[in-house]
Nucleic acid binder design. Structure first.
Length: 896
RNA sequence: GGGCGCAUAGCUCAGUUGGCUAGAGCGUCUGGUUUACACCCAGAAGGUCCUAGGUUCGAGCCCUAGUGCGCCCACCA
């Protein structure tokens, strides 16, 4: 075995190892060596957008999913992780438009076809970048099944689902008020609108001098489209006007205003009277529908005032507002202008203020009962999480608190606008044909274009979330032929679908719960009559070290790729997994990553030490478990190991990644490196070498899902056959033998405590480290075990060269005196009386407090009666032991 | 306006079903070339577990109210 370098240099191994994994074919479950009955485990990767580069959000997601995947693969599951990318319609189109703009071009100049070619080229390049970055993270996903939300197979699924929903009457086209982004020139779904608080001017004005009262608004320019004034029915000021119609001349435009009553009007706000603009406010639109009001469109799709408004026509919203305000002031109609703060709605992609306006769009009806199911999409999606649907258990959400958010969102869901006026995306599979004048167009909805002349496809595309909503099953088809509609539902006739659907868990960031997770539940329950996944695991957002969101403008962005270069992928993965709780945001700093680099290096050195020490053929690892052949330390470490296997497995299976990692670190650094390896330098035997190798092998296996590269690198250096990636997960039962007698494990803890107490006492007494001292131990009942551990007590940084063990004996004066349980230890010849006196006094104080507490507890009849017996018993024993030490120390103190 | 989360050592956070002399990592301090590792080793200091009530034999953990910070949702014109 060649000797390993002193420290682990990730960059020398990572790319080569990833290639080995990939070449092995084991990312693909078809190549795993499994029984036919092996259970399957599957995850679909939330597809990164093809626009971007890898950020820390992706990194967390990839790290967590890879942990699960590697764990289940090693456990012998038929394990599949499907990677893919998202075409992210608006985001991608916007980006390409930006690039074009730099060349002085717009998409309209290019035309639809040429523009789309540009986008496709851009997406291709961008795709390759992100895929390479996903690989950099060590992701063990099956690239042979890579999917794209806009490829041929996915397109067939999208169109089939659209058709299904259309035929079931769940998709309809209608004129409704929508969120319109004048910059993107497209609609947005309700949850794609973001709100930002800002200062705004609230104007109080009168439409005309003869109108009886004033109204307040922040958007005077829309008032050109007012068709009513709403007041609260209880507002005595306006009661007499309700039902009346006023015709007013508002800055040269005649408005017919009906005074209506509506409970939602706040009497306190403004003047208590609200100008109703049905075309440009959702609430007003709803009032208009209820009260049958006229609708006057004022603003067009460019965010400009439409024709027919005289001097205002053609102005953009801001200009028009300024002009109207100025006119109101001049004509004396303006009564008040005040600063208020309100929420403006912004496009989540480009931050442009959105304009609510009426438009003919495609919608999914969320309240209509689904034929054959008898429940609406909304009801079905709530059921899926609350009680379970189609014979499945309820979908579990981790952490559970997000259930509430989910229900709230789902229960308040309005019809989902799915059409977008952009070019990049799934074109709506609807074709129209003119039927002559004055009649509606003929409509064809289908998977393939209709035969015959004169058909024109709808120019709009689908909301990108429509296709991502199908992701858990659309990715399980490889060929469009496998996708069929049967019995009003979608059928995917593939082995993958049969084997891997529903997926086991959907792992993603919590900020995407509504955008995506909810939509997958909506789509899958309806279209497949099944759940898309059994569990949802939500991770938090990665913030900078001060808890702020990372953003380019703030300059606080940590680039995962840069960190990988500097500290290695394994360290980056750990820094994102350990020390954070499910669904909680985490703060990340470079120091944190550096800390985990140290841990990775520690693991490397543990391996380096064991491998150079135990030059064993590691095929033959039969450990002798006979009592004679195992020392206390052996028993102890083997028992620790067994517990570790149990709890790490349990933690990963229950998504407690941080805790699993924490336990592995504790074991590796503390129990193994600082104790057992040190001990192995003094206690030697062939059996011990076997134990060391066995522990190393199992430890590497357990670390592997967390830090795949360093563990695989060590594995390869060991000359082991095969890849660690597909090695069998450690077995608790390999260690069961050792647990037959737990008392020896506790015995070792006693030795450990004695050693630590000696180190401490030396340090407190300022005994120079190089100075060797003599020690005498009165071991009492522990005589045998301490006798067996003489070498350890002398060797493990206690600086003792002469050690005498007796069952008991006389008090020794002028010695440092330590008690550990009922064991008394004297350190001779190095005493500093002042310091020693202080130390003993402190110890006594401490013990007295404890003894007092315990005594009053045990004197409390309530406690003794009501607390469980084990607890009472334990407290009694503790009291006895503390009491004994206390008397011993008090006795000792008399000397000083 | 509703909902959710967080508040524990200087910093970042663990603390699963109440039994704790409240833990870890980083940082700080005292020492140390101990042939696996200075990306290291040994030792130490450091905490009214946000506040006030309550339930309980027993509360960091459960309940109620409050304070501070953060987030989400909602049609405040």
């Amino acid at each position: 075995m060649p000797s390993l370098p002193k420290s682990y240099i990730p960059s020398q191994y990572e790319d080569g190892i990833y290639k080995k994994w990939e070449d092995s074919g084991y990312f693909n479950p078809d190549n795993l060596d499994l029984d036919d009955e092996a259970a399957s485990y599957s995850i679909v990767m939330p597809p990164p957008n093809v626009t971007g580069t890898l950020h820390l959000g992706h990194a967390v997601m990839l790290a967590l999913e890879d942990i699960l995947i590697r764990y289940y693969r090693m456990r012998g599951y038929r394990t599949l992780w499907i990677p893919g990318t998202d075409h992210a319609a608006i985001a991608t189109q916007t980006k390409v438009e930006k690039i074009l703009k730099e060349k002085g071009l717009t998409r309209h100049q290019l035309g639809r076809e040429r523009f789309l070619r540009e986008v496709v080229n851009f997406a291709k390049k961008s795709h390759d970048t992100i895929v390479n970055q996903v690989k950099k993270m060590g992701s063990s996903c099956d690239w042979s099944r890579e999917a794209y939300t806009l490829d041929e197979v996915r397109t067939k699924v999208v169109r089939s689902v659209f058709k299904l929903m259309y035929d079931d009457g769940l998709i309809y086209r209608g004129e409704r008020i929508v969120n319109w982004c004048p910059r993107c020139h497209s609609t947005l779904a309700d949850d794609e609108v973001e709100y930002k608080e800002q200062k705004a001017k609230l104007y109080t004005f009168r439409y005309s001098p003869d109108f009886p009262f004033t109204i307040a608004t922040t958007r005077p320019e829309t008032k050109l489209g007012d068709t009513a004034v709403a007041v609260n029915p209880k507002d005595y000021r306006y009661k007499k006007y309700i039902g009346k119609v006023f015709e007013v001349n508002f800055l040269g435009h005649i408005l017919k205003l009906k005074i209506i009553a509506d409970k939602s009007v706040d009497i306190e706000f403004g003047t208590g009277a609200l100008g109703v603009t049905p075309a440009h406010s959702l609430v007003d639109w709803q009032m208009a529908e209820e009260k049958n009001l006229d609708i006057i469109k004022v603003i067009d799709e460019d965010g400009k005032i439409r024709q027919g408004f005289g001097e205002f026509s053609g102005l953009n919203v801001k200009e028009a507002r300024a002009k109207i305000v100025e006119r109101l002031r001049k004509t004396g109609l303006m009564e008040k202008e005040e600063e208020i703060s309100n929420n403006i709605s912004l496009c989540y992609r480009c931050d442009t203020p959105i304009e609510p306006l009426p438009s003919k769009q495609w919608f999914i009806n969320v309240n209509k009962k689904i034929p054959g199911i008898g429940k609406s999409i909304k009801e079905l999606s709530v059921e899926a999480v609350r009680n379970g649907v189609f014979g499945r258990k309820p979908i579990k959400i981790y952490p559970e608190r997000f259930r509430k958010n989910y229900f709230h969102w789902m229960e308040n869901l309005r019809d989902w606008c799915i059409s977008r006026q952009i070019w990049y995306g799934h074109r709506i599979p609807v074709w129209y044909k003119d039927k002559g004048q004055n009649s509606d167009k003929e409509v064809y909805v289908g998977i393939e274009p209709p035969k015959g002349e004169g058909w024109k496809q709808d120019p709009d595309t689908l909301d990108t979330w429509f296709s991502s909503g199908l992701w858990t099953f659309s990715t399980l088809a490889q060929d469009p032929q496998q996708i069929k509609i049967k019995d009003r539902r979608l059928v995917i006739e593939s082995n993958d679908f049969y084997c891997f659907h529903p997926t086991n868990v959907l792992e993603t960031a919590y900020d995407i719960l509504f955008f995506w997770v909810a939509r997958m539940i909506i789509m899958t329950t309806y279209v497949m009559r099944d759940v898309p996944f059994y569990d949802v695991y939500l991770h938090g957002l990665v913030l900078d070290e001060h808890g702020k969101k990372m953003s380019k403008s703030k300059g606080n962005v940590i680039d995962p790729l840069e960190m990988i270069k500097k500290y290695g992928t394994d360290a980056v993965r750990l820094s994102l997994v350990i020390g954070s709780a499910p669904g909680n945001d985490m703060k990340l700093s470079e120091e944190k990553i550096a800390g985990f680099r140290n841990l990775v290096n520690k693991l490397w050195n543990v391996a380096r030490y064991i491998l150079q020490k135990s030059k064993l053929d590691n095929q033959n690892l039969k450990i002798q478990f006979k009592d004679q052949s195992l020392t206390l330390a052996d028993k102890w470490i083997l028992s620790q190991m067994r517990n570790l296997i149990r709890s790490v497995s349990d933690d990963i299976a229950n998504y407690r990644f941080s805790q699993a990692g924490e336990k592995l670190r504790e074991f590796t650094w503390n129990s193994l490196a600082d104790w057992y390896l040190e001990i192995s330098k003094f206690e030697q035997s062939e059996n011990k070498d076997k134990i060391l190798i066995k522990i190393l092998i199992d430890l590497l296996k357990m670390w592997h899902p967390f830090v795949p590269f360093v563990t695989e690198a060590i594995w390869q250096e060991m000359g082991t056959n095969g890849l660690l990636m597909v090695a069998k997960w450690p077995q608790e039962k390999d260690y069961n033998e050792v647990l037959k007698d737990e008392t020896q494990v506790r015995d070792f803890e006693k030795i450990k405590n004695i050693i630590m107490a000696i180190r401490n006492a030396r340090s407190e007494n300022k005994v120079e480290p190089s100075r060797k001292i003599q020690a005498i131990i009165y071991a009492g009942k522990n005589y045998e075990i301490i006798k067996k551990s003489i070498i350890l007590i002398k060797s493990l940084r206690t600086g003792i060269d002469n050690l005498e063990i007796k069952e008991n004996g006389k008090k020794i004066k002028k010695a440092i005196y330590i008690t550990v349980g009922d064991v008394e230890v004297y350190l001779l010849g190095a005493i500093d009386p002042e310091k020693e006196k202080m130390r003993i006094k402190r110890e006594i104080e401490n013990l007295e407090k404890l003894v007092d507490n315990l005594k009053s507890k045990l004197n409390n009849k309530q406690f003794v009666d009501k607390a469980p017996r084990e607890i009472v018993e334990r407290e009694k024993q503790r009291l006895a032991s503390f009491d004994l030490r206390l008397t011993q120390l008090k006795e000792k103190l008399k000397e000083y």
